[in-house]
Each structure stands twice: as structure tokens, then as C-alpha cells.
């Protein structure tokens, strides 16, 4: 039996073990002291359903559904304050990314905005090799938040007026090479 974050035994095949296995350096999660430095350092912690410290206790308790349905990973802004300060050197930001991936893979998220934003962004990158801000914003906002489009309009107008939004996407030349690399990576990841 391996030790979990609370010093309790952890069995293979559990949610806790799955999170560790899917995170580079995830083994450190076993060492969590529940000190709360992560939550105290988090700029968006007060808007999260559970702070990172709370999430780690829930992970150790294998509360998969509640963890993956919470807004916590999606409200992580990737500022790395927690990772920097964690006395046990847990790669907390990377664990939040793992939780996002698992929530998407299992369809366990309550608010679709953040997952949809990430997926729209990546769709553009896989297609062109570069991000395309106007296309991204238009597709995302028109399909997911049509009521917000008036405000987006002012923003886009400001940006267009100062020539800061491209009207056509920029693309890399060797998109087929990029596609081959990403396809192979997806295949390897699927086979894991």
C-alpha cells in the first residue's frame, strides 16, 4: 500500500493514483501536508468551489465526481504561485491541468465556458499551426455566449481600429508535418 496525502493507504487503480500517473512529477502529491500555502497564494482561490488544499484532501479521499465537477481547475490562472511556494514541491499547476483533462475526457464539468474556450483555441492551432484571435473569439462567443457579444463588439472594435486584430488567419507552411506529429502524439497518449 502506498501512502496518500493524508498518510492513509492508497490502492492502485483509484482516482488518486490515476491523477498521479497522469501528471509528470505527480508522485509528489503523496507528500501533501495540508498546510494551505497553495490556497493562500491563489489569486482566484476565493472564487473556487474548493481551494487547492481542499481539492488535494478530496483527491486523497478519491472523491472523483465532486473534484472533476468543481470549478477549481478551471479557475486556476496558471500563475504558478502555489507551485513556487509549495514546501513539498508538488507541481500543483500541472495537477490542475490533469484535472481539466480528466474532466473533459469524462464529460464531468458543470460550466462549459472554460473547456469550450480551450477546445476552440486548440482547434484553431491544430488547423493553422497558429492561434487566430478574431476567429477564435468569434466562434467561441457566438456559439457560447451570444449575450456577451455587444461587449465583445466594443473590445473588437477598439482592437481593429488600432490594427491589433488580423482579419484572416496566419498559417504555418508545414501544416502536414505538424498534423503528423500531433496525430502520433495522440496515438501514443491513447495507447497509454
Amino acid at each position: 500500500m502506498m501512502a496518500s496525502g493524508n498518510g492513509q493507504p492508497s490502492s492502485p487503480g483509484t482516482f488518486f493514483e490515476e491523477v498521479i500517473a497522469k501528471t509528470p512529477g505527480g508522485e509528489a502529491l503523496r507528500l501533501c501536508l495540508q498546510c494551505g500555502t497553495c490556497g493562500g497564494s491563489c489569486p482566484s482561490g476565493e472564487d473556487m468551489d474548493y481551494t487547492p488544499r481542499h481539492i488535494f484532501a478530496m483527491l486523497a479521499a478519491n472523491m472523483k465526481d465532486k473534484v472533476l465537477r468543481s470549478n477549481t481547475p478551471w479557475y486556476c490562472v496558471s500563475c504558478y504561485y502555489c507551485t513556487e511556494r509549495c514546501p513539498q514541491e508538488i507541481p500543483i499547476t500541472d495537477i490542475m491541468y490533469t484535472l481539466k483533462r480528466m474532466a473533459i475526457a469524462q464529460g464531468l464539468y458543470e460550466d462549459a465556458d472554460a473547456p469550450d474556450w480551450s477546445q476552440t483555441f486548440i482547434g484553431m492551432v491544430e488547423q493553422f499551426g497558429r492561434s487566430y484571435e478574431l476567429g477564435l473569439a468569434t466562434r467561441y462567443h457566438l456559439t457560447h455566449r451570444p449575450l456577451g457579444k455587444i461587449r465583445l463588439g466594443t473590445f473588437a472594435l477598439d482592437m481593429l481600429r488600432r490594427d491589433r486584430l488580423a482579419l484572416t488567419p496566419s498559417s504555418i507552411r508545414n501544416t502536414s508535418q505538424l498534423r503528423a506529429i500531433l496525430d502520433k502524439a495522440k496515438e501514443l497518449e491513447g495507447a497509454q
Binding site: 481539466k100 483533462r101 480551450s118 477546445q119 483555441f121 499551426g129 497558429r130 505538424l178 497518449e189
Partner: peptide, 25 residues
Amino acid sequence: DDWNCCGATEYFAINLLPAYALVAR
């Protein structure tokens, strides 16, 4: 020459290995 997007903070939220492969190119 012919650099591609780094995936920003989005790709790691979708796929792990493709995200690293995208950057590594």
C-alpha cells in the same frame, strides 16, 4: 523558420503529450 503556436495555457488542458509535442516542434 515556420514556428508554430506554443499552445498557450490551453493545450495542456486538453491533451498532455500532444501539448508537449506541439511545443517541442
